[in-house]
Nucleic acid binder design. Structure first.
Length: 477
RNA sequence: GGUCCCAUCGUCUAAUGGUUAGGACGCCACGCUUUCAAUGUGGCAACCGGGGUUCGACUCCCCGUGGGACCGCCA
């Protein structure tokens, strides 16, 4: 049965049994892009039928991070746990119609069967043992309180659907086995609740991970039994770990929250995720959410899985950081910096912006700002050897520091251009600028790699700069 | 084991029967530079294999092979 309405209605249906991770988030993004591109409505549905594993904290994490990413829905969030009365009607009908039945098999019994089937090389599926139970037997077992579940009676037929991304996919339903659709009359399970909800919410397109392909025939059969329309399906390729298996916890933390905490920008994560399985067909690689919406189409989605490549995310994040204004970037870096300098020079807002500005293009993620700029907030600690430029001896280093001290002391207008002017004249005369400039930079930063010494000196201020030169001299003695 | 899905540089990918197989990340070299970045230039690097179809296959078909997903009273 085809959907009557032309309206495009799409759902994101995460289950709150874990944090929002790259897999979920990418699926959510593609749902969002598809919906917005086609002017449809996006519905957020929380699939929390499993009360054991569902957690409000996860639900909150998913919602918060979806918002942070800029993936905004039009309706919901709807919680399946609050919709049981709706499912019950449909479940009831199915049982009354004889299309679903009680099963009293124990889990041990079932597990043994499955192992046996697999070792025999036949499809692992339920054998339909309880399908032939009589009314009396069922009543008896039920009144005895014997544990039971409700299974859907699979009709034997070919089930096929036309996947938007993959084309025709066909299954033989006899290989499926009667699956469990509810624990009891008031506790529906995933496959059942989903089919009812997709109908109730008038979902036109189901866009989800490839791992759901095997669920699709089950859901189609359920739709047919309930006489419900069939939405269109599109199965996205999986995001893979370095070992090419489905991305999961064993590949390390993949939660969006964790990346966010490390200082990845939402725009980088979005741009990155979009290209995991999709590309515009042009050589353009930098996309904002708006331009993604404009150019996205499911037809251009890849069929094969994409390995999660952190280096690319880092590159993108560095790129987006460099696009930020100093104002904005300073704001973003603030949480990663010490609240107040411990023993170092006073740092006001303008100074802070100066410091951020000189590290802008060295940043791959915001959290790195701490390590990069720590010497502004406290006296640097370093070994004497670090002051040595190439094969300079102690005497040479001392001489350089003396010259620096003398020249810097005389500077009236303390800004980086003036400092550079004064020092470069001297540095050029030595024939190797490093003789003067390397110890200068190390004395100020205590690092073997840092931003340029002139801008550091300017930000540090004349007094602090001279203090640090003196400290370097003490080290060399 | 069964079912299903997939297959271009290390990675993400372009190519829709005719290209020196293109771009990006990463890597290497060089330039700029006191260092590290950023940046510029250049380089290395791929059509899984075998059969067809065709004047011509990365592109279409078949068979292998390889990888993956699923086979829950999870979603």
């Amino acid at each position: 049965m085809a959907l009557k309405s032309k309206e495009i209605r799409v759902r994101m249906a995460p289950s709150p049994t874990g944090l929002l991770h790259f897999g979920n988030a990418r699926t959510a993004l593609f749902n969002y892009l598809f919906t917005k591109h086609s002017g449809g409505k996006l519905i957020l549905r929380i699939e929390d039928t499993d009360i054991e594993r569902s957690d409000k904290a996860f639900e909150k994490d998913i919602i918060d991070n979806l918002k942070w990413l800029g993936i905004i829905w039009d309706e919901g969030p709807f919680l399946q746990s609050e919709r049981t009365s709706i499912y019950i009607k449909y479940l009831d009908k199915l049982v009354k119609d004889g299309l679903a039945y009680y099963c009293f098999c124990t889990q041990e019994e079932l597990e043994g069967k499955k192992q046996e089937q697999m070792s025999r090389g036949v499809p692992a599926k339920y054998n339909g043992k309880c399908h032939n139970l009589s009314e009396e037997e069922i009543k008896k077992y039920l009144s005895q309180g014997k544990p039971s579940v409700i299974r859907f009676k699979i009709p034997e037929k070919k089930v096929s659907f036309n996947d938007i991304i993959r084309g025709k996919i066909e299954f033989e339903s006899s290989l499926l086995g009667d699956f469990v659709i509810a624990k009891d009359l008031s506790t529906p399970l995933y496959n059942f609740a989903l089919v009812v909800d997709d109908f109730e919410m008038k979902i036109s397109h189901v866009i989800r991970g490839e791992d759901h392909i095997p669920n699709t025939p089950k859901q189609i059969l359920l739709q047919e039994a309930l006489n419900l329309p069939q939405p269109k399906y599109g199965h996205l390729p999986l995001i893979l770990g370095p070992d090419k298996s489905k991305l999961s916890k064993r590949h390390g933390t993949q939660s969006i929250a964790e990346y966010r905490k490390q200082g990845y920008l939402a725009e980088s994560v979005i741009n990155f995720m979009a290209f995991l399985g999709w590309n515009p067909g042009t050589e353009k690689e930098i996309f904002s959410m708006d331009s993604l919406i404009k150019e996205f189409s499911l037809e251009k989605v890849q069929k094969s899985g994409a390995i999660f490549n952190i280096q690319r995310l880092d590159y993108l994040n560095g790129f987006y950081i460099r696009q930020k204004s100093i104002d904005e970037l300073t704001e973003l870096c603030q949480p990663y910096l010490p609240a107040s300098p411990a023993g170092g020079p006073k740092i006001d807002k303008q100074k802070l912006q100066q410091i951020i500005a000189m590290h802008k293009e060295r940043l791959k993620k915001l959290s790195e700002i701490k390590e990069l700029t720590d010497f502004f907030f406290k006296q640097p600690q370093y070994s004497k050897e670090l002051l040595r430029w190439k094969k300079a001896d102690d005497e040479q280093i001392k001489q350089s520091l003396d010259i620096l001290e003398k020249l810097l002391f005389k500077i009236k207008r303390w800004d980086k251009a003036e400092i550079e002017n004064v020092l470069m004249v001297e540095a050029e005369q030595t024939g190797d600028r490093g003789i003067l400039l390397w110890p200068f930079r190390v004395a100020l930063s205590g690092k073997k790699a840092s931003a340029g010494p002139f801008e550091i000196a300017e930000a540090l201020g004349k007094e602090e700069t001279l203090i640090r030169i003196k400290q370097a001299k003490e080290l060399i003695l």
